[in-house]
Design a protein around this nucleic acid. Structure first.
Lengths: 322, 322
DNA sequence: TTGTAGGCGTTATCAA
DNA sequence: TTGATAACGCCTACAA
């Protein structure tokens, strides 16, 4: 069936070893031999079996990527860059959509180990799982502390929260409310809220935070009902911000006249679908590349120069909703 | 290092064969032996090496998934469902972002073969590539003819195009223009345009199509400049539609009063970020599951009951832009 | 410069 | 019911 090295060897009239040498450019090979081998490979349409190779060299060039879902434009874009950059460095990506479920995450992690991945990049909304503390398995977390010694990459959540809150204040808002998704006390994303609270207090204002769980819309309605005086909202992601826009429209609250609104993430998709939304843009590509770089450093055993926590800068996009 | 079957065997005091039997539940195994083996596995924290297993059984339970980019909400959502469903059936997903580039697609295809994937699901915007005609490699195409014998799954593009065009006409539009992305004559997505043209002619109207390549915005501007009389636009995807909305706003063209607009795709993300946009919703989850089902049938050698072309129904969402 | 032999971790065959 | 052995396709000592 599928041609193997020994088939090439037969056709070329050499030994399998020689073929392997040609394949890997190792050791001495005669010019003629090399050509003969190449011709033979062409002729029978040979390509190497990476599975067999991996088994021997104990390295798969596979990395597992665990995130809630590629459906979300932020993760979709992040994963695009992860895969793209990893690919440019010779690594392949095994995709895992955890849906933020701890059970799925655990079983994915097992699956990845059975598949001998060289490393794992994970980010999600649930609490750090002990299971990530796996000896000999390089791991990098995005926006999330996975275990004591796993490096974390994130963007500057505190600065993002500060920029967003400050902007609302600078534009004259007095009653500013923060909405965020399910909070995990141990994720860096929580810093957005801390920054918001700090800015508020520095300006003699009272911070109020609403937390959404499943149902954004319900929470948002409650927010407007509870606080008709609200004139500024900082949403912890653009999807929530979009929901706020919709609810505001329903209530005939004019943005940005009556209410100023800023979101978070600034994905390509949001910028196309909802360019009028002010937001904090995360450097998604940089995040992805940093994650991969750090992971590969670990894989290559360069433990020295690995930063435990890498923080990348965010950018304020002051568009039409503020 | 990593424990292997023979390590388990030693601890349990049996032979590797027996351990393998326990692992795979094959043949006769004594109750006590089974327990001993299980204990031993627990004790040394053993998990099987799927690479080695794959090498022997010549099956990896890996499927390659080639699409332009997970950044795009449509593909992101499709890939989420592909992975999710494949996972539920015991298959793992190798992710490939082709960016619609033929060279990348070819090299991914090679990579996937070297990794011995059991099959490939691919969809993209460029022309069918001969390279997909690979003996013994099951392939399924989404919205795209890949080669003579590869099954295709798509949603009902013709009906979608018809519904969209007819809606604009029903709402009183007289000067309706269609915009689509780069057209490949051989993809089913082209049917959207054909339906549009048919509907137009059936109503004694002249079809006009603008094709965008890279720069949506430029094309859209030209469209408005060329046709100030336009009162209806059918965009072949929601992102283009969003660009139209933006340009219309810039020109003080009121939607839906002066101009009615309908997009295509209806992803979850669009529904959240831009719920007011009328669109044709594709059954993304069904598409994904159908792709996987058909692929696995091929993998399992059930060639009989494989439909060459599966078409799934679309749904009209008549929102606020029409 | 090239070939032979053994091993990577697993599974299946066959014998015990 | 269990164990020894060979094989999956490749790679690397070591020998020639």
């Amino acid at each position: 069936m599928k041609p193997k090295i020994s088939d090439v060897a037969k056709v070329a009239g050499v030994s399998p070893t020689t073929v392997s040498r040609v394949l890997n450019n190792r050791g001495y090979i005669g010019k003629e031999t090399r050509e003969k081998v190449h011709e033979a490979m062409e002729k029978i349409n040979y390509y190497p079996n990476d599975i067999a190779r991996s088994l021997y060299i104990k390295k798969t060039f596979l990395i597992g990527v665990i995130f809630p879902t590629t459906s979300n434009p932020f993760y979709g874009q992040l994963i695009f860059h992860l895969e793209n950059y990893a690919n440019s460095l010779g690594y392949k990506v095994l995709l895992c959509n955890s849906q933020g479920r701890e059970d799925k995450e655990k079983s994915y992690l097992q699956m990845l180990q059975r598949n001998q991945v060289d490393g794992v990049i994970a980010g999600a909304h649930n609490r750090g799982i002990e299971e990530y503390d796996i000896p000999n398995l390089p791991v990098v977390g995005f926006d999330r502390y996975l275990s004591k010694n796993t490096p974390v990459v994130s963007s500057d959540n505190y600065e993002g929260g500060r920029l967003a809150s400050q902007l609302l204040i600078d534009k004259g808002c007095k009653n500013i409310i923060h909405i965020n998704g399910p909070i995990d006390l141990e994720t860096p994303a929580n810093l957005r809220r801390e920054a918001y609270e700090k800015v508020m207090r520095d300006n003699q204002l009272t911070p109020i935070t609403y937390e959404t769980t499943r149902d954004n819309e319900e929470v948002i309605k409650r927010l407007f009902d509870d606080h008709p005086e609200v004139d500024g909202i900082f949403a912890s992601d653009d999807l929530i911000a979009a929901n706020v826009m919709r609810e505001a429209r329903k209530r005939n609250i004019s943005i940005p006249n009556d209410l100023k609104l800023i979101g978070y993430d600034g994905t390509q998709t949001t910028r196309i679908l909802l360019p009028e939304l002010s937001t904090i843009e995360q450097p998604i590509k940089d995040i992805a590349e940093k994650c991969v770089d750090i992971l590969i450093k670990q894989i290559d055993g360069e433990r020295e120069d690995i930063q435990q926590h890498t923080i990348l800068p965010v950018r304020l996009i002051d568009a039409e909703t503020t």
